[in-house]
Amino acid sequence: MSLTELAQSIDITLANLSILKTGKARAIRFSTLSNLCKVLKCQPADILEWVDGDDET
């Protein structure tokens, strides 16, 4: 699945998907997370990882 197809299927723009992918996003909506898990057939823990570090970044 290409990034464009993924962006279309979870109803966000390609630019926003890029922000998510590069880790520049400050927060993620439950609806976006839910759509992502639904399309990718996975659990939130499969795509989210907590890393010890600066909370502001």
Binding site: I12, N16, L17, I19, L20, K24, A25, R26, A27, I28, R29, T32
Partner: peptide
């Protein structure tokens, strides 16, 4: 506003 723009 910046936070909101970076909330996906």
């Amino acid at each position: 506003r910046q936070f909101e723009q970076l909330t996906i």
